[in-house]
C-alpha cells in the first residue's frame, strides 16, 4: 500500500514543496549589472561632454537605451528558452519593470519635448520604486536598501545644483544597482551554478 501518509505528513510535504518553489528562479542580477554600467557610463559621458561645452553628450541616453534594451531582450529570450520553471513572481517582477520603463520614457520624452530640463531628481526617486519592490519580493535585502537609497538621494537631489545631482545619480546607481546586482549574482551562482 503506497498511501501510508498521515495528514500531518501530507501537510509537511505540501509546506516543504511550496516553500522551495516559491521564489524566483530567473537570474535577475544580469539586468541590474547591465543597466548599472550603462547608466553610469551614459551619465559620465553626458557630464564630461557638458563640461567641455559639447551637446553631443545627450546622445548617450538613446544609445544606452537601445543597447540596454537589445541586450536585455536577448538575455530574456535566451533565459526564456532554457528556463526550468516559471513562477508568478517572475511575471510580477517583469511587468513591474516594464511599467517602470514606460513611466520613465513618458517622463523623459514629455519633459524633453516640452523644453524642460531632464527631471533627474524625479527619475532617481522613481527608480527607487521597482528596486525596492523587487528586493522585497525576492526577499533580497541589498536591493531593498538600494531602493531606499534611491528615494533618499533622489529627495536630496531636488535641493542641490545639477553638478551635485549628477554625482548623486551615479552614487545611487552604483550602490542601488551595481552593488546589489553583484551580491545577487553571487547568491544566484551559489543557488544554481551558471
Amino acid at each position: 500500500m503506497e498511501n501510508d501518509m498521515t495528514p500531518t505528513q501530507s501537510l509537511k510535504v505540501i509546506e516543504e514543496m511550496i516553500a522551495q518553489a516559491k521564489r524566483s528562479f530567473h537570474r535577475q542580477s544580469y539586468y541590474f549589472m547591465l543597466w548599472g554600467v550603462l547608466l553610469i557610463a551614459a551619465m559620465l559621458f553626458n557630464y564630461v561632454m557638458a563640461l567641455r561645452g559639447s551637446t553631443i553628450g545627450g546622445y548617450a541616453w538613446p544609445v544606452m537605451g537601445v543597447v540596454g534594451g537589445v541586450l536585455s531582450f536577448l538575455h530574456g529570450a535566451r533565459e526564456g528558452r532554457s528556463k526550468p520553471v516559471t513562477t508568478p513572481m517572475d511575471r510580477v517582477i517583469m511587468w513591474l519593470w516594464m511599467a517602470f520603463v514606460v513611466t520613465l520614457l513618458l517622463t523623459i520624452l514629455s519633459s524633453a519635448s516640452s523644453g524642460q530640463a531632464m527631471p533627474l531628481a524625479s527619475i532617481i526617486v522613481l527608480t527607487g520604486l521597482p528596486t525596492f519592490v523587487t528586493g522585497q519580493l525576492m526577499r533580497f535585502r541589498p536591493l531593498v536598501f538600494g531602493g531606499i537609497l534611491f528615494w533618499v538621494l533622489g529627495a536630496v537631489a531636488y535641493f542641490v545644483p545639477i553638478s551635485v545631482t549628477v554625482w548623486l545619480f551615479i552614487a545611487a546607481i552604483f550602490f542601488g544597482y551595481l552593488v546589489p546586482g553583484y551580491l545577487l549574482k553571487r547568491q544566484e551562482d551559489g543557488v544554481r551554478p551558471a
Binding site: M5, M17, A21, P84, T87
Partner: peptide, 17 residues
C-alpha cells in the same frame, strides 16, 4: 501519495516546471 502530492505542491506554486 507522497510523490504525487509533492509534484502537485510544486506545480501549484509555479506556473509550469
Amino acid at each position: 501519495n507522497q510523490l504525487r502530492l509533492a509534484v502537485v505542491s510544486v506545480l501549484v506554486s509555479v506556473e509550469e516546471a
